[in-house]
Simulated scan of single mutants.
Amino acid sequence: MDAPQMASRLINWDLAATTAARLSPPGPPLTPAEAAEAVASLRRLADAAVPHVHRITELAVAEDLRDSQVLIVDRAAWARANTQGFAVMMDPILRRLVETKASELTPAAARVGGALTGAQLGAVLAFLSSKVLGQYEPYAALAPRSTVPPAGRLLLVAPNIVQIERELGVEPEEFRLWVCLHEQTHRVQFAAAPWLRDHLLDTISELSESLVGNMDSILERAAAVAKSLRARSAGGAEVPSRGAIIDLLQDPAEKAAISHITAVMSLLEGHASVVMDAVDASVIPSVKTIRQRYAARSENRGPVESFIRRVLGLDAKMRQYTDGAKFVRAVVDKVGMAGFNRVWEAAENLPTEEEIHAPEQWTARMGL
């Protein structure tokens, strides 16, 4: 078995998708007519959102998005789509792992390990499948023999959107348009910066090469962290924060790569949040109520869900929305949307994590 074949077996992607579909909690009760109405409504409102995104972002590409597609999906289809995207993103690290650990890997071990990892990934996707309202997924288009359009696809998870609008007690059509504004902005971002997908993939690949190449060192540092935690706990000292632990587990190159990815994700999420919050009552009459009730819902999670979200890093993602939105608003207030849009011109124009928290440094570096 050659290295690419061995790498493809290290995670059983089909098992991940079927496990996620089996474990995903049921969606809200819908009659066939209600389900059909929700799908048709979301498809129509996804189209209706685009002119607003164009007006707010001032990005000309929003006028023509034909190289990607919009899909209205259920939870199982969302999980399956994500296994396809993950397979592309994980391919570099899996191949590198095969190359460095070839003497320790056998086809049988790869199959067994792949089944275990696939089942674990499926369980994670099952949890996430009931939380995600929408997602722009650009990576599956790069898979061999992919039928996904060249620029990717926007996924709107119909049962989750319906469930949240019912929980919030808001007008369905208005809530759906509000969600579509955010998600269509992500689609426009990748259209405005067609280099962004490969740039992120290259950064992830470089990070994975470093992590795999430094595996022995990482294990030594992990052992040191565990020893430190035990000593601190026994002595009643404060346990290090998650950030401090991450610092101990990464060398400078790894930390730089993760910092860059964090900054880019903060930019993308913050920009989309700014767009969805830029509409007023003339577009979405109940937008104030939607914002207030959605924010309040996010603060009232149970202890189990809160724990899982912390483990999966979802709380960190929520901070990206907030930090990124502050960056975008500060830049737009100072130099206008046209000045901010310099960010989509080249990878060199992306803000650093430090600049996300100090927007004036980015505008100075851009000469704005």
Rank of each mutant, 00 (worst) to 15 (best):
E167H: 07
S208D: 14
A143Q: 02
Q163V: 01
E174I: 02
G152K: 02
Q189C: 12
L128W: 05
R166P: 07
T147W: 05
Q189M: 06
G169L: 04
R166F: 00
S146I: 04
T185W: 07
L181K: 03
E206M: 09
P138E: 14
T203L: 15
G152V: 02
V188D: 03
K131A: 04
T147L: 06
P144D: 14
L207H: 01
I204D: 05
A158E: 14
H182Y: 05
A191M: 00
P138H: 10
R197Q: 15
Y139F: 15
P138N: 14
Q184L: 10
L142A: 13
L154G: 05
L154S: 12
A192G: 12
P144M: 09
P172S: 00
Y139Q: 11
L133Q: 12
R197K: 15
S129M: 09
H199C: 12
F190A: 01
R153P: 04
P149V: 09
L211N: 04
E174Q: 15
S205R: 06
E165K: 06
R197Y: 06
A143K: 02
W195M: 11
A193P: 08
R145K: 10
T147P: 00
N160Q: 08
A191W: 01
R187A: 06
A193K: 03
G169C: 08
P172V: 04
R145L: 12
R187Y: 01
E165M: 11
L154I: 09
V170G: 01
V212W: 05
A141P: 06
S146F: 07
E165N: 08
L142P: 01
V179S: 04
E167D: 11
A192I: 05
A193Y: 02
W178M: 06
L168V: 04
R145V: 09
E174T: 06
H182A: 10
S210E: 13
P172H: 00
L156N: 07
H186K: 07
H186I: 03
A191E: 11
A192H: 06
Y136Q: 06
Q189E: 15
V212G: 01
L128Q: 14
L207Y: 11
E173C: 00
D198M: 13
Q163A: 15
S129F: 02
V179M: 04
I161V: 15
Y139K: 02
R166L: 00
F190L: 09
N160P: 07
K131R: 13
L155A: 10
I204G: 11
E183Y: 08
S205P: 00
L181C: 08
I164K: 12
W178F: 13
V148R: 04
A143G: 12
R145N: 14
V170Q: 02
E165S: 13
S130Q: 13
V132Q: 06
P172M: 03
D202L: 08
L133T: 03
E167M: 09
W195T: 11
P194H: 04
L211M: 15
L181I: 09
V148E: 14
A158Y: 03
L207S: 07
Y136I: 04
G134K: 03
L154N: 06
